Lab assay of single mutants.
Amino acid sequence: MWEAGIQHIELEKGSKGLGFSILDYQDPIDPASTVIIIRSLVPGGIAEKDGRLLPGDRLMFVNDVNLENSSLEEAVEALKGAPSGTVRIGVAKPLP
């Protein structure tokens, strides 16, 4: 389960991407759907250096692409398709 509020994070995407990987996970509230979760951070990558994204965070959007009900493929496309420079990411943090 995740917090209702969405944290807005801006990262600078370079030639090596944003520095994290994702996975799809069965939604605990709606078993028929999936949620997109941050799986891991690349050591020394943009996301790890920034410090705000953590494994277990739920990915909600990338720039103007809503990922609340997306497939893993759609989420990967949104991340890979984001141009270099500032990328806006929304995440919901896990409940304590």
Rank of each mutant, 00 (worst) to 15 (best):
S15Y: 06
G19C: 02
L95I: 12
A4Y: 11
A32N: 14
A4Q: 14
D30S: 09
N63A: 04
E74R: 08
V42C: 09
V91D: 01
D30T: 12
R88D: 11
I6G: 03
L67M: 14
L59V: 09
Y25K: 15
R58C: 02
K13I: 11
D24P: 14
I38T: 03
S84M: 07
E12N: 15
L59W: 01
I22S: 02
E68W: 05
E48S: 07
P83I: 05
G14K: 14
M1E: 07
A82L: 14
V87W: 02
A78M: 09
E77S: 08
K16L: 08
I38Y: 00
P43G: 06
S21R: 09
A32Y: 14
P96R: 09
S15G: 14
L72C: 13
G44M: 12
K80L: 08
L54W: 14
V62L: 11
A78E: 06
V65Q: 14
D64V: 02
V65S: 12
N66I: 07
E73D: 14
D64C: 10
G56D: 07
P55Y: 03
I89H: 00
W2L: 04
V42Q: 12
A78W: 05
M60L: 12
N66Y: 05
M1Q: 03
G81Y: 11
L59Q: 01
E73L: 09
L23R: 15
K16R: 09
R58M: 02
L23A: 14
D57S: 15
P43Y: 04
S33N: 11
I36V: 13
D57R: 04
T86S: 12
L95H: 06
E73N: 08
K80F: 09
V42W: 10
F61N: 05
A4N: 12
G85Q: 04
R58L: 02
I89N: 00
G56M: 10
K13G: 14
D50E: 03
W2D: 11
S40Y: 07
T34P: 14
K49Q: 11
D30W: 06
A82Y: 03
G5C: 03
M1Y: 12
T86Q: 12
I36L: 07
A82G: 04
L72S: 15
I46L: 09
F61A: 11
I46A: 10
S70D: 03
A92C: 14
K49G: 10
L95D: 08
P31N: 13
F61K: 12
T86H: 10
N66K: 13
V91I: 11
D57K: 02
G85R: 04
G81Q: 12
G17F: 02
A75F: 02
A92V: 13
I36F: 05
W2G: 04
R88E: 15
N66C: 09
G81A: 15
G85K: 07
V65H: 09
I46G: 14
V87Y: 02
G85S: 06
Y25C: 13
G17N: 08
A82W: 03
S33Y: 07
L18S: 02
L72I: 14
I9M: 09
S70V: 11
D64M: 06
R39D: 15
L18N: 01
G56T: 02
N63M: 03
V62D: 01
N69D: 10
V35H: 11
F20Q: 00
G81F: 14
I6P: 05
K93S: 07
S71C: 13
L18E: 02
G81R: 11
L72T: 11
S84K: 08
S70C: 13
E73M: 10
S40F: 08
L11E: 00
I22Y: 02
E77I: 11
I89K: 01
I46R: 08
G85H: 04
P43N: 10
I29V: 13
L54N: 08
R58H: 03
E74K: 03
L79A: 02
M1D: 08
L41S: 01
A4K: 08
E48C: 05
S21I: 05
T34H: 07
A75C: 15
G17S: 05
S21Q: 11
L59Y: 00
S33C: 12
D30L: 09
P94V: 05
E77V: 11
G14C: 13
D50P: 01
L53R: 01
N63T: 00
P28K: 14
L54G: 15
D30V: 10
P96G: 15
G5M: 15
F20L: 06
N66S: 14
P83V: 07
L54E: 15
V62F: 04
E3P: 03
D24Y: 02
R39T: 06
K49H: 10
G90T: 06
P94Y: 07
N69F: 12
S33P: 14
K16C: 07
P43T: 14
K93Q: 06
N66M: 11
S84H: 11
E74D: 15
K93T: 04
N63P: 00
L79C: 10
L54M: 14
K16Y: 05
G51V: 01
A4F: 13
D30E: 09
A92M: 14
D30R: 08
E12Y: 13
G5Q: 09
M60E: 03
N63W: 00
L95G: 05
A92R: 10
P83L: 08
G90L: 02
R88Y: 13
G90I: 03
A92G: 10
I46W: 04
L41Y: 02
E12G: 04
M60P: 00
D24A: 05
G81D: 06
V42N: 11
G19H: 00
V62T: 02
L79W: 02
D27V: 12
G44A: 08
A47H: 00
S21L: 05
W2M: 14
S40T: 10
G45A: 08
P28T: 14
P83Q: 05
D30Q: 11
I9T: 04
D50A: 05
A82Q: 06
P43K: 13
W2C: 05
T34Y: 09
V76L: 13
L59A: 00
G90R: 04
S33G: 08
V87D: 01
V87R: 01
S71Q: 11
E73Q: 11
K16H: 06
G45K: 02
G90M: 02
P55H: 04
D64W: 04
V76K: 15
V87H: 02
Q26I: 08
S71L: 07
A47N: 01
L11R: 01
I9H: 02
H8V: 08
G19D: 05
A47D: 00
V35Q: 14
L53C: 06
E48L: 04
G85I: 02
K49C: 06
I22G: 00
I46Y: 09
S33F: 07
L53M: 14
P55S: 15
I37A: 14
E12W: 07
M60W: 03
Y25M: 14
L53W: 01
A78T: 11
G5I: 13
D50W: 00
M60D: 02
A47M: 02
A75R: 01
S71H: 09
I9Q: 00
F61I: 08
A82S: 08
G56V: 01
G45E: 15
E12S: 12
D30M: 10
G5A: 07
S21C: 07
G17L: 03
S71A: 13
P83T: 08
E73K: 10
P96F: 03
D57N: 09
F20M: 04
I22N: 01
E68K: 10
L11C: 03
E10S: 11
K13R: 05
V91S: 07
F20P: 00
A92F: 07
L11G: 00
N69G: 13
M1P: 02
I9Y: 11
G44S: 09
G56L: 03
V62P: 00
M1F: 12
L67H: 03
V87N: 06
Q7G: 04
D50N: 14
D24E: 06
L11I: 10
D27C: 10
I6S: 08
V35A: 15
V42Y: 13
I22Q: 01
K16D: 05
L11N: 00
P96K: 11
P43I: 05
I9L: 09
S15C: 10
M60R: 06
I36K: 04
D30K: 11
G45D: 06
T86D: 05
E74I: 07
S84R: 08
V65E: 10
